[in-house]
């Protein structure tokens, strides 16, 4: 589904990612871990198409298509979803209003029927119920006055509506207390399926106690220094990132 080869990415001429290789197949859940400033979010942003991020070398293929030349909205229409680390508040814009516009764009691109306000309202109500997320959230202005937990739930609800093939969850655990982390994780787990891949970007192992990954990749200074299964995350939890960074050879699984 996603194939990243020798990816180098710069922001304002400064190289952040320095040769990333990653292959994600349908239904797999990958965790990208790493200390602050290692390039984790950059990887999520470059896949979503954030302006200002430049691929200087290497390639990114999504279902065989070159992502590097694909506009942001077309990536979304192709099935890529980014859950933001800091979801933006947009006073004046109701969540259900803009996400219906996005949903209908995706439907149109897929040659499927667009939904009117009433039908869409039914859909979002069902999605919210299945994820145990308050439906009333959809009537509020996007993330305006939301708590950290509400913002993250709002991201997951949008994801449930758009039903992406590949979801990039950038620090979905940041700013959450224990209860909110459990709720958000449950919602994410409910969204896992054979046809949907997840990339979890996280600083902490604790998220992976709730959402078990198939593969773990540790990023440091723009390169993967270790790759393995969920046991690798446990090791990081025990010994810290320094332990891995100072080792000569990382884990290797793939």
């Amino acid at each position: 589904m996603l194939e990243i080869k020798n990816l180098h990415v710069s922001i304002n001429g400064i190289e952040i990612l320095k040769g990333i290789n990653l292959k994600v197949d349908s239904g797999e859940t990958h965790a990208i871990m790493g200390p602050n400033g290692s390039g984790k979010s950059t990887l999520a942003y470059i896949l979503a198409g954030k302006p200002g991020y430049e691929i200087t070398k290497g390639s990114v293929l999504f279902e065989g298509s070159d992502l590097s030349t694909m506009p942001v909205e077309e990536r979304s229409r192709a099935g890529i979803f980014l859950s933001f680390q800091n979801p933006i508040a947009i006073p004046g814009v109701r969540m259900d209003h803009f996400i219906r516009a996005g949903y209908n764009q995706l439907q149109k691109a897929a040659g499927k029927q667009e939904l009117d306000v009433l039908k869409f309202d039914k859909l979002i109500k069902e999605k919210a119920a299945s994820l145990e997320i308050e439906y009333s959230m959809t009537k509020r202005f996007v993330n305006d006055g939301f708590s950290g937990g509400e913002r993250k739930k709002n991201e997951i609800l949008q994801m449930a509506v758009l039903e992406p093939k590949l979801a990039l969850l950038d620090e979905i655990d940041s700013g959450l207390d224990v209860d909110a982390l459990r709720e958000v994780s449950t919602a994410v787990n409910n969204m896992r399926s054979q046809s949907r891949s997840l990339i979890l970007v996280t600083h902490y192992q604790r998220l992976l106690d709730h959402i078990a990954p198939d593969y773990v990749h540790v990023l440091s200074e723009g390169v993967f220094i270790a790759q393995g299964d969920s046991h690798l995350a446990k090791e990081v939890e025990l010994h810290g990132y320094d332990w891995l960074i100072n080792r000569d050879i990382g884990f290797s699984l793939k």
């Binding site: 979503a48 198409g49 954030k50 302006p51 506009p71 942001v72 909205e73 990536r75 979304s76 229409r77 979803f81 980014l82 933001f84 979801p87 933006i88 947009i90 803009f98 996400i99 516009a101 996005g102 949903y103 764009q105 995706l106 691109a109 949008q158 758009l162």
Partner: peptide
Amino acid sequence: SIFYLMTRGLD
């Protein structure tokens, strides 16, 4: 904010 909305499929 524009980028946020575009990641949801809006041009």
